[in-house]
Design a protein around this nucleic acid. Sequence first.
DNA 1: GCCCCGATAGACAGCGCTGTCAATTTCGGG
DNA 2: CCCGAAATTGACAGCGCTGTCTATCGGGGC
Lengths: 337, 337
Amino acid sequence: MRKANIADVALRAGVSTKSVSRVLNDEPNVRPQMRAKIEEAIEALGYKPDLAARSLSSGRSFIIGLLFDNPSPNYTMKVLQGTLDACHQAGYQLVIENVDTASPTIGQAMEAMLQHRRMDGMVVTPPATDSPAVLDALERANLPYVRIAPNKFPGRSMTVSADDQAAVSDVVRHLWNLGHRRFGFVGGPASHGASMWRHDGFFAALAERGVEPGEIQEAEGDFTFTSGIGAGRQLLRAEPRLTAIFAANDDMAAGIFTAAAQLGIKIPDMLSVVGFDDSWIAKSVWPELTTMHQPIAEMAHIAVRTLIASRNGKAVKEPAPQNCHLIVRGSAGPVGQ
Amino acid sequence: MRKANIADVALRAGVSTKSVSRVLNDEPNVRPQMRAKIEEAIEALGYKPDLAARSLSSGRSFIIGLLFDNPSPNYTMKVLQGTLDACHQAGYQLVIENVDTASPTIGQAMEAMLQHRRMDGMVVTPPATDSPAVLDALERANLPYVRIAPNKFPGRSMTVSADDQAAVSDVVRHLWNLGHRRFGFVGGPASHGASMWRHDGFFAALAERGVEPGEIQEAEGDFTFTSGIGAGRQLLRAEPRLTAIFAANDDMAAGIFTAAAQLGIKIPDMLSVVGFDDSWIAKSVWPELTTMHQPIAEMAHIAVRTLIASRNGKAVKEPAPQNCHLIVRGSAGPVGQ
DNA sequence: GCCCCGATAGACAGCGCTGTCAATTTCGGG
DNA sequence: CCCGAAATTGACAGCGCTGTCTATCGGGGC
């Protein structure tokens, strides 16, 4: 018993193949009665349209690309999960493309990729979101794309992002309410957009509460665990000792744990630490890390839906920034004596 | 200027489209001179065959599926990297499929997936490798598949695995040479194949050196960081104190770090810890974790190549077990006084 | 009751490639 | 130099679906 095709369905429903096609594609001008007949036949035969044929015939490919550049596995996996799920729901396939944004030949790599694979659209994740070469190539290929949480070129494309400012402000409120008044901040390289926003948001929220920038101890890392250790050591030298440190990502926050342990400083009794990302490492330290969860999978989901919707010619309005929320675990507690 | 198709190439080379097709598919019986002409034309026009048309016409899909079931992001990312790379090289696309092996409806989920997507083959990762429902569905669909490091049903399919036994034996040699004589082992659930092998390999290698099983302290975790803390606390109660602990994966090894820190036991001065997997967490503890690296990406690469080769009708011989190697970092040192 | 027009359904021709099979060329041996 | 077999090339018909265009239907306005 071979797989049913559109002709089988048409035959069983006593209609033309084109009508079946109309139902499949949700086209207008199909009488309800006919639609019902056809849907019954599809159901009965377990018919699934053949993607290759559909693609060949219509020019659409039913493939969404996911472009990523090797950031943390946690992040990528979450994006993957969101895009995958959205693609499945919409009957699309997901094709993963890994590029090296920093490579000088990135332009050619993109060309090759775009020529070879026919895609209906592409989801772009940081840091590829901020590479002019990548964006240029995409635009030259006339391929619709959505960027997730880009740091540069706002307005250049459809975009889905998180509300970083509000998120950081929540972190500050949480720590403030626990009684903390002496703060440290571990940022990433100044060139990194996300790092900058988190920095600015942190300082701004504290300023609102009357804490001057000069009162806040600051160290710079590079988003790695190791750099977090160094930053932690540096900050924990301060006298009187800080009671709370906010790190711009979880890996650096975990590094602070190690620095604290080496200095005999107990978390959370003597020091509260808050991270950002709710990445996988947050549950791999003890006590588990209080951190800001970004709805990465949801953002990815939205990105795919936006892409598919825009393909249908409908003008799609930019989705609003997504809300983050604080995951309270054990690493931040009331200020000690 | 629209994209070139096979007819354009044929025209430019002054041959039939079928001949071009022969060159594209590397079929025999093409004279070198003709092949050269055609390749020149392909080059000149920058021609890339259309996957959808190829697929529709030949029945092959040029798509390889990657089936995974939500294990650690690190592991999955490595598999992803390997399969992705191999697919690219062979001009295939990779489609990710996420399933829940434990779900009671896994059979139906597999059916639905296999019906909808036409694939040329599938790479299956643990724990899906050991689910009869998954394997049954694959076989019913008559889809070639390769399992990576399966724990059950040896011989049921093509398989790529690592040489766990030899790997664990290396761990033992390393610790033994550092002077350790009092060992602890943290395993996973006994039902888990990988865990069992690592357990048996560890005990066997020590037995060779005259250490009786009864002398080895043992605790059971479930591969999570948290369970590692518990296991660590339990093992570190032993008197005289153990000098080396081997954990069946890195997450649990990291848990032991936390337990040790809480008990004031310094690593590596007072305790050596070795993990398994060389996962991402290995570099997110301090000192960094000495651990066994499995060539996961390479294994995935081989799996894809095996799949593609077997598709061509050629009988493919089972690839040999892949070699692991020990990554020496700071967590295991000479036995203290 | 008739005409006109929009709504609905169907016929048909490809999309770009490969499988099949037939036509042609080449080559070795007699 | 001729013949048959093997090697090489090409013609052609789809693969399963959708775009385009045409035919038909149904209903409102006069």
